[in-house]
Amino acid sequence: MKISKSIYIKMSIYLMALRSPLIIVSMALYMLTRKEMLQRSILKLVPFILFLLAADIYSIIMGNEFGNIIGQTRDIFLAIVVAVFLLASSDISENNRALIYRTLKYCFVYVAIAKIFIIVLSVVAGISVNDIISWLRDTWNIQMMSLGVEDTVLARLQIPLDSAVPFFLYFVTRELIHNEDNKLKTSITFVLLMISMILTLSRAFWAETLFMVFAAILIEAKASKIFKISIITAIILSFIIIFTPVGDMLFKVIETRFGNNTNNSVSDSYREWQNRSLYNSFMEMPIFGHGIGYYIPNALRSETTKYLYESQTLSMLMALGIIGCAGLLLLIAFTCLKAVSKESSGAFAFIMPLIFLAMWLFSGSVNPLLFGASGGSILFMTAKFHTLYKRGDS
């Protein structure tokens, strides 16, 4: 039985959600089946390989722990490999582009449904959501944080891949505006992804989600449609808030993350203290940094992954310095914007991709999710901003 080559793309995206190391195997298998794919990928990866090799040598000379150097290098390189793999796949075939968009959408939807299922299971079985989260974390090694919403069955349900959903919601909103054929299906997808973002209980993800949705409406919709969307949204939200228990739960969720409570004050004060430590360490060696894998012994976020900080953007400045961060960012920006220039022209064509890059850096400044597979998918969306979704895709 002949195996369809597209199965490797689908597998790679779903394995990305599961944070499985098998993602490297599935990507490699697809590259080996397409000579052009392998050539494109290698050409894009060589500058990053040389950069990381130089950074690793510098880090070894600085005396950083070898295991931490390898770990942080792996995180950075995985993001680049995922972005390059998806980009090269979509470049060699229009069918691949549509397949990637569709598979990403299904993947994010399945995650949203899984979150809703956890809440339903908690209610039906009488098991605390935090207990379910602990089981998932221990059994599947999924990074999930615990935070309950007082007087409700809700709790924080956030996985690393969630960092890419606000960016993807731009394209789902674009589809909702332009696609008249599957309006109901797209609307359900939009609602599920919004619920998924609400359940992350992440203020940063909420801000990014609102920004991306409103940006998509303002850029993609005509004035008459913007007015129509505003009226319909206002009516629906008013009905939900006034006449359903969802409104009360929504307010409790917002109060949990913005109210004056112990969880917020402790979290914010710890982040501020950690950021001060990172900044002070950066100022010790601002030009070339302390090297990949470096960590501050008396300011750790994790005992197992010592180089990983809540503000990953600032920690990268500490590790690579101004020169290293500028070099890495230029390589990433060049890769993304080169792809943008092939698909759209004019100065305005680069505005949203540059905003995507800025939002990616912002997201990494409040969550340790700058790199890895989720960061790679964000960089891919940046590079394919103008063509990831086309009218008629579903």
Rank of each mutant, 00 (worst) to 15 (best):
V84R: 02
D138M: 07
L52Y: 13
P368E: 07
G247I: 10
I119D: 04
Q312N: 13
S377Y: 08
K5A: 15
Y30M: 10
I198E: 01
F211T: 04
I240F: 15
F190K: 09
I235S: 07
L199Y: 05
G259A: 08
T387E: 03
N280Q: 14
L32E: 11
N280M: 15
F371I: 13
A347Q: 01
S377T: 15
L300T: 09
A234G: 00
M197D: 02
L184R: 09
N260L: 10
G321P: 03
I332F: 05
A339W: 00
E150M: 11
S163Q: 03
S281M: 14
P353F: 00
I240R: 12
K252G: 02
K225E: 09
A55L: 12
S345L: 01
I287M: 08
I236F: 06
T152R: 10
P245E: 06
C325Q: 08
S277W: 10
V172Q: 01
A373H: 07
V46N: 05
K225T: 12
P297I: 11
S269M: 13
F348S: 06
S4W: 15
K342Q: 08
L314S: 11
P368F: 12
I322T: 07
I42G: 02
S341R: 00
N64A: 09
N280G: 14
K228G: 06
F168G: 03
Y295Q: 03
L308W: 07
V124H: 11
V82W: 04
A347W: 00
I219E: 02
Y295H: 11
Y389E: 04
A349E: 00
I76N: 03
T335P: 01
F214Y: 06
T200F: 07
I177K: 01
R102T: 14
K252V: 00
